[in-house]
Computed example of a mutant assay.
Amino acid sequence: MKILVTGFDPFGGEKINPAWEAVKKLPDTIKGAEIVKEEIPTVYGKSADVCKKAIQKHQPDVVLNIGQAGGRFTITPERIAINLDDARIPDNENNQPIDQTIQTDGQAAYFTQLPVKAMVENVKNNGFPAAVSNSAGTFVCNHIMYQVQYMIDKEFPNMKGGFIHVPFIAEQVVNKPNQPFMQISDIAFCIEKTIEAIVNFGDKDDLKAVGGETH
């Protein structure tokens, strides 16, 4: 198995993005799966172009995109991506789409093919907080998750895709009182544990475990 793991560059005035910093720390092999690492820009459209070129070059079985979700306490695999760009802030090339459809011939939403509950359980079983998320937002994180799912739908039907949001790291919250954070080494460890679950489950159905939300 070959897994392409991407992380975004810094955005929103930050000097670092824990997503890419954590991806860089991943081992080159996890449970026998080859790990290919790629940085992608926090830019609508261009992020998908860079990701697609990496897919064409490496022909992965799985694409796992990683992004920063400042304010979240846990490692959160995303369950679904929606066909909507609605930017609260500009991206790194000053694009700020408002209520724009990502792909006119795409589905309203796509569910990940990855075993998100098994991923969460493996992180928790190794001593760190994790939860399934049912909203990837409407910024570039949702955009890339949707775009990869669209590529799967239209061009790469044998590939699987998914997205994980990670918290801030310590240096990002020095001047952000009461914001949760994790150490970068711990984020990398947690991502590794999610990948272990992806490999272990292969084509098996995800766990039937409690993981829903009331609101």
Rank of each mutant, 00 (worst) to 15 (best):
P180D: 09
H165P: 03
Q183T: 13
Q179M: 14
P157N: 05
Q179S: 14
M159Y: 09
F156C: 11
Q183Y: 15
I164G: 06
G161S: 13
V173T: 03
Q183C: 00
P177D: 00
I187G: 11
I187F: 07
F163W: 06
Q179C: 12
G162N: 01
A188Q: 03
A188H: 04
V174M: 15
F181C: 14
E171W: 04
A188P: 00
Q183R: 13
F163N: 04
P177I: 00
I187T: 08
S185D: 13
V174S: 11
G161L: 10
K160R: 15
Q183E: 15
K160V: 09
N158A: 11
I169Q: 03
K176V: 02
Q172R: 05
H165T: 02
I187L: 12
M159F: 07
A188G: 04
A188D: 08
I164R: 02
V166T: 01
G162Q: 03
M159R: 13
F168I: 08
Q179A: 06
M159H: 09
K176I: 08
P180F: 09
G162M: 01
P177A: 05
N178R: 14
A188F: 04
P177N: 03
M159C: 06
M159S: 03
G162S: 06
E171Y: 12
N178K: 14
E171T: 12
A188Y: 05
K160S: 11
S185T: 09
K160C: 03
V166G: 02
F156W: 05
P180H: 10
M182D: 10
M159P: 06
Q172P: 08
V166I: 14
I184D: 00
G161C: 10
G161P: 07
N175Q: 11
F156I: 06
M159Q: 08
P167D: 08
P177K: 02
N158G: 10
F163H: 02
N158D: 14
H165R: 07
D186N: 14
F156L: 10
I169C: 03
P157G: 05
F156R: 01
F163M: 07
S185F: 06
G162P: 07
F168Q: 00
F181V: 02
K160E: 10
S185H: 14
M159W: 01
I169Y: 05
V166P: 04
S185W: 04
D186S: 13
F163A: 04
A170Q: 13
N175A: 13
F168K: 07
N178F: 11
S185Y: 10
H165S: 10
P177Y: 00
I169R: 09
F156A: 09
P167F: 12
G162D: 04
